[in-house]
Design a binder for these strands. Structure first.
Length: 427
RNA sequence: GGAGGGGUGUCUGAGUGGUUGAAAGAACCGGUCUUGAAAACCGGCGUGCCGCAAGGUACCGGGGGUUCGAAUCCCUCCCCCUCUGCCA
């Protein structure tokens, strides 16, 4: 949520910012107008309430003195009716204002490239070198099937398309990678590990900005009004919702969770294998920081994610997203993409964003600064990193001519010392 | 799932429908005293909104209602505790 004062006082600047991301300005204009209405109404009702409070107290005094108060009471009752009417009018305006505010995306950071879609993104760097093959590299589906790492056909029987099933060394590799990443973030990068609920309530979804816009993309349990999390960002960032944080900033949290996404609207896209699925695992990093540090913290966040990939010796690149490609709540975002030689394309495995105080306002998450003044924190999050595509990249980048996959050294301790994945009979 | 009890400020904990935003204590901040500290004493000490300000207004788990007036009464939802049932 944006600061309504900012909209009130710097409307043109906000409008220009939103225009950069190609956002409609309808909600913004509504918010501006409703805010003006709201302020007028508040002034009026407050005045009425003041009057009522005074008169009601007089009644109390008169009654104690044993005097008749019928007439005054009648007067105040009329006043009460006026207040009720004004209040309900005010409530409607406030509700409409809230709806408008919840639908306005964040203003992009001034320094990011301008563009309306992915074509406007800027490549920051490429790290490592693409692997060279003396043979035609296979894609992860073929590798996975040959080595018996995946069983997508049976997974369809169990649930449906898009719900992958890993087995044997594949399942173990995935688990090993989770452990490897969590260990790195907690022991080297200063994060505290959380194992949060995978199902959250509506307030939490609104807090991080998935609702109201993304309702169609998420799994909803109607009976309980709960949602399956599309990312650990939701439960982890909501950890401090409605709080004035009681500990020194910055606070770094990390969590492994499965993620559930309906991927509505992407039917037919990347449907083969585990490239785009309805359920996947991810290790997420979340930061709560002081406003003045948030952009420096974003750079560090990207490095934390990079360390995972560097440690595995993978070839990747970093993109700085343009104004039209960042998510609803973000002000600035870097994507990290892994090279997938079998698919001959880049795969997004991490998105690192600075939300400034956009989420904090929705979450009502604040802290006391050095002067003891209460302020909204800045929140950031980044994948550290998403698993299926990490597995894909490992399989495809480290595949060998003999059909095996050489495991990165860093992961071997988590795989009982195993050096490569080879075809194994299912026991 | 069933029965009962309860949700008040940073914490503990009062609160009869009427100057109660809310007693008291603790914690915390400032001051006096002290060589320094502790103790003692004095003062301060919630948040949002409207307002240039003075000030006003709202908030005692959430929402709604009764009333001239609600932390106090009623309804409803959520959460916690105790007992009990079923169960990984």
């Amino acid at each position: 949520m944006l600061d309504i004062k900012r909209i009130r006082e710097n409307f043109a600047e906000v409008a220009a910012g939103l225009a950069r991301r190609g956002a409609e300005l309808t909600y913004l204009e509504q918010a501006r107008d409703l805010d003006a209405q709201r302020r007028t109404l508040v002034t009026e009702t407050d005045a009425l309430k003041k009057e009522r409070n005074t008169r009601s107290k007089e009644i109390g005094v008169l009654k104690k003195a044993g005097q008749d108060t019928t007439e005054v009471q009648a007067d105040v009752r009329v006043m009460g009716d006026q207040i009720t009417a004004k209040d309900s009018e005010l409530r409607e305006v406030e509700e409409a204002l809230r709806t408008a505010m919840l639908n306005i995306p964040n203003v992009p950071c001034a320094t990011i490239p301008t563009g309306l879609d992915a074509s406007g993104n800027r490549e920051v760097c490429q790290v490592g070198v693409p692997p060279h093959f003396d043979f035609k590299p296979l894609d992860h589906i073929e590798i996975g099937e040959r080595l018996g790492l995946l069983d997508l056909a049976r997974a369809v029987k169990i649930t449906g398309s898009g719900f992958p099933l890993m087995l044997g060394q594949g399942a173990q590799l995935q688990r090993a990678l989770i452990q490897y990443m969590l260990d790195m973030h907690t022991t080297q990068h200063g994060y505290t590990e959380l194992l949060p609920p995978f199902v959250v309530n509506t307030d939490s979804m609104r807090g991080t900005g998935q609702l109201p816009k993304m309702a169609e993309d998420m799994y909803h349990c109607e009976v309980d009004d709960f949602w399956l999390i599309p990312t650990a960002e939701v439960p982890v960032t909501n950890y401090f919702r409605n709080e004035i944080m009681d500990r020194p900033l910055p606070v770094y949290l990390t969590a492994y969770t499965p993620c559930f996404r309906r991927e509505a609207g992407s039917a037919g896209k990347d449907t083969r294998g585990i490239l785009r699925v309805h359920q996947f695992d991810k290790v997420e990093m979340v930061k709560f920081v002081e406003p003045r540090n948030s952009y420096a913290e974003l750079e560090l966040l990207v490095k934390d994610a990079e360390d995972v990939l560097k440690g595995l010796g993978l070839h990747y690149r970093i993109l700085e997203l343009c104004s039209g490609d960042i998510s609803f709540a973000a002000a600035k975002c870097y994507d990290i993409e892994l090279w997938a030689p079998g698919h001959n394309c880049w795969l997004e495995v991490s998105s690192c964003s600075n939300f400034e105080d956009f989420q904090a306002r929705r979450l009502n998450c604040r802290y006391k600064d050095a002067e003891g003044k209460i302020q909204f924190v800045h929140t950031l999050n980044g994948s550290g990193v998403a698993l299926p595509r990490l597995v894909i990249a490992i399989l495809e980048q480290f595949q060998q001519a003999d059909g095996s996959v050489l495991l990165p050294e860093a992961i071997r301790p988590y795989m009982q010392g195993r050096e490569k994945l080879v075809a194994a009979m299912l026991r």
